[in-house]
């Protein structure tokens, strides 16, 4: 699905992976997490081939946040967050408390997950990853089901993680969030990297036209940009007319 992709990601930064539907964003993220083996080539972590790492060692280094997982059992928030310690096989009380603090979940810690709102649930799922104290956080569309306020709140948590020295890699649909909050953006189309760089360059209107087939321009000032699309792909136009 992904072809000819070679890149190096840095810790302490937010890297956004964007692209139209079916571009291979989630597959790339799974590959980076060591959960999907490339047909050829390697993914390395600090010089080690990730496929050769013991699964537990890999899990200690990389926290993976899947896209809106359904939670099989109606456990309490603290029990779910404590799952983050599984790669370490310890109780990790301090790390769990720190994760609950970081995402302001202390008041909810005994609440069953079935009684959480969408925003609370997203925070709990991220806290589970943070409890594992990974060097890398890989998140697949963590903002997809959230309203504007919760999107911003969760994005602020990712920014805090990056400031903390953790590498953050997120698949995003909302290009404005990538533009305003990422340090670097990878744009994928049909499994190929068509742009890679700081958001102003990687999300240039020309790249958006090439990737999404949409004429668009950015409005606003740096850090608070909005994307305005003028016309959709030609197909879509024809349907509308």
């Amino acid at each position: 699905m992904i072809a000819d992709l070679s890149t190096t990601l840095e810790p302490g930064r937010i890297t956004a992976i964007v692209g139209p539907n079916g571009a291979g964003k989630s597959s790339l993220l799974l590959g980076l997490a060591g959960l999907l083996a490339p047909a050829s080539g390697t993914v390395t972590l600090g010089g080690d081939d990730i496929a050769g790492l013991h699964p537990r060692v890999r899990a200690q280094a990389i926290g993976y946040l899947p896209q809106a997982p359904d939670i099989a059992w109606d456990v309490a928030v603290e029990a779910l967050v404590a799952l983050g310690r599984l790669p370490w096989r310890d109780r990790g009380t301090d790390a769990i408390e720190a994760a609950l603090d970081a995402l302001s979940l202390q008041p909810l810690r005994r609440r069953p997950v079935s009684q959480l709102s969408g925003g609370e649930r997203a925070r709990v799922l991220l806290a589970r990853v943070l409890a594992g104290e990974p060097r890398w956080i890989l998140a697949d569309e963590p903002l997809a089901a959230l309203d504007l306020a919760h999107q911003l709140a969760l994005t602020a948590h990712f920014t805090a993680c990056a400031a903390n020295g953790q590498g953050v890699v997120v698949v995003l649909h909302d290009l404005a969030i990538a533009m305003n909050h990422a340090d670097r953006v990878l744009v994928l189309k049909d499994g190929r990297l068509i742009a890679d760089g700081p958001p102003e360059l990687a999300l240039d209107p020309q790249v958006i036209a090439q990737g999404w087939g949409v004429k668009a321009r950015w409005l606003g000032v740096r850090g608070a940009m909005a994307l305005v699309a003028h016309s959709g792909p030609e197909r879509a136009n024809r349907v509308i007319e």
């Binding site: 699964p55 899990a59 993976y64 997982p69 799952l83 599984l86 790669p87 096989r89």
Partner: peptide
């Protein structure tokens, strides 16, 4: 038992937590 706990969040999440 502990591997089964990891499955609470699905197969991909379980594998990401080191479950084989």
């Amino acid at each position: 038992a502990r591997n089964l706990d990891a499955l609470t969040l699905g197969e991909d999440a379980a594998r990401s937590m080191g479950v084989e």
